[in-house]
Amino acid sequence: MCKKGKWGFLIGLSMVLFILSGCASNEKTEEEKLVEAIQEAVKDSSIGGEASNKAEKPTVESTLSEIVNFVTIDIWNEAFVNISWYAGSGTDSTGNELDIEFTIDRLGKAMEKKAEYNSYIAGLDSKYDDIKQVWTKLSNEIDTLYAKLKENPPHATDSEYEFDTGLFKQYSKAFDSDVESLNAQ
């Protein structure tokens, strides 16, 4: 190739590269715009990004519903109902083997959480006085039954063992009903 041809080729190549870099730059800009649009859409829809990282502050109603679930699951289902059955039949409420010491230990952990709920409910304003009153009865009954278990745990098929959950069920049902009514408002 001659010098003139080389320069022409290099100039032509430079122009092509310049044009391509300009196009690539435009494509990148369009690509960046697309990425930004997707990020904005995700942020707005709370799928990811800043909006989803911020947990909504729980309401009194949602916290009280959480407490109802706690009483039903952690206190009744996982402990009291199984303990009642254990004393009578030697099994849990579904007929399965039950480790009574483990069950009482797990109930002890639930009692720590109940103490937090006691503080929460005590701190509610006077608008919730009815719920506070029922919770106080329910909480005291839970404490009474737990103390009995700690002091004198049942043995399997011990027909002499008394573990009366009648008051617990009455107060629990009232608390559940009051919270449900509050949530319906």
Rank of each mutant, 00 (worst) to 15 (best):
F168D: 00
K169M: 09
I104L: 07
E180F: 09
G108N: 04
L145P: 00
A115F: 08
N96C: 10
W85E: 11
N69V: 11
K57R: 09
S159T: 15
G95A: 08
A51K: 11
F18C: 08
A41C: 10
L124G: 03
N82G: 03
V35K: 13
D129G: 05
Y128V: 03
Y128A: 02
A147P: 06
P58G: 08
K33C: 08
E50I: 12
I104M: 06
L13A: 09
K54G: 09
P154F: 04
G8R: 14
A51T: 15
Y171W: 05
A41W: 11
E97L: 13
A79Q: 02
K169R: 11
S172L: 02
G12C: 06
G88I: 14
S93V: 07
D158P: 04
S46W: 07
A115H: 07
K33D: 10
D176S: 15
K148Y: 07
V71P: 01
D125R: 05
I142D: 00
A51R: 13
G123A: 04
K137H: 08
I104R: 04
N69P: 06
G166H: 13
S119R: 11
V60P: 01
K127M: 07
F175Q: 01
K28F: 14
D105V: 13
I100Y: 01
K33E: 09
L17R: 08
E40F: 10
Q39M: 13
T59F: 05
N26M: 15
G48A: 09
W7D: 14
I121G: 00
I83F: 01
C2T: 15
L138T: 01
E32H: 13
L34R: 11
E66Q: 11
G12K: 04
Y146T: 08
L64A: 00
T63W: 02
L182G: 01
A55H: 11
K113N: 08
L34V: 10
A37L: 13
T94M: 14
S139Q: 05
A24K: 11
H155V: 15
Q39F: 15
I83W: 00
K3M: 14
F163R: 02
S181C: 11
E32N: 14
V179P: 01
S45R: 07
A51S: 14
K43N: 12
P154R: 03
S25V: 14
L34C: 10
